[in-house]
Amino acid sequence: MPERPASQDLLIGIGARFDDRVTGKPDEFAKRAKKIHIDVDPSSINKTVVVDYPIVGDVKRVLQELNRLVKPLDTREWLATIEEMRRKYPLTYREKKKLLPQFVIQQISEVTKGTAVVATGVGQHQMWVAQFYQFNTPRSIITSGGLGTMGFGLPAAIGAQFGRPDAVVWDIDGDGSFQMTAQELATAARHHLPIKVAIMNNQHHGMVRQWQDLFYEGRHAQSRLNPVDFVKLAEAYGCAGIRVEQKADVRRAIERAMSVHDRPTVLEFMVEEAENCWPMIAPGKSHDQMLGTYEALKQEGGIPQHRHAEPDEEAKLSLG
């Protein structure tokens, strides 16, 4: 059994609420670690995970005080262990014949150099954005992490573009999420917002389909969606529309979208329907019962061909 991040001995929670999507099974979460929780909201402390060092206070002021007291630690061995694990078990996916959403998101990340503001819907594409878009600046991932509101991406991207007119704003969405608020293309078109909407069209509620395959013996109850011509839809609203089916066309399409400045562009990527989002922790399970890990994918056959790009040294140190 490889070592897991659960082998940490101290967990420092700062301005975070230990939500169930982070902790998995709360009793098993970072079991060996002493826990610190710094938060402005007293009701968040000891809510899901009981901590050893609760601190209620303004995070900025608490950290300022803490920074006066802490000294450099010798974490060389620990950082080397993490680096080793990162090398041995990279975040990855296996190539398939059809276009893969992970590849598309990596390409968007590269073309925008990780500096775009990226809004998302909710589901597989949302997880893939978190995994494969290399964010470099604060306030750049705009996603419904708590309520999990499908349909959030397009209007949130519009709001972000109004707030930061000079930023490059993308909505990376799924065909299911996008259709819940797609009518707001009218709002974006009316104001000539240059937002880019990348729809990972797999004609499914993909995360629901994945769970049905994993936990409901593959019975796809109401998770298949009707095909929609999103290029026509985009054009009907006065937006530019581009459909991409081949891997070779992805880069050019993204670059083309980046060159449109007077209206929104909708990119429809026809992606593999059966692709799953890995790794994942099943409901009620703990971190060391993770599914779809690197080893598991390797055992299924085939050496993964793509690795997650390593964050550079500076980004690691700044936590960026």
């Binding site: 940490q8 967990l11 700062i14 975070a16 982070v22 970072a30 402005v40």
Partner: peptide
């Protein structure tokens, strides 16, 4: 907390958007 950090060998920071809200 500072003393607990000084004693730790395998520490990890788990930061949330509260850091951003606080401008920290």
């Amino acid at each position: 907390v500072a003393e607990a950090i000084a004693r730790s060998r395998q520490p990890v920071i788990y930061a949330g958007a509260g850091v951003l809200h606080a401008g920290a």
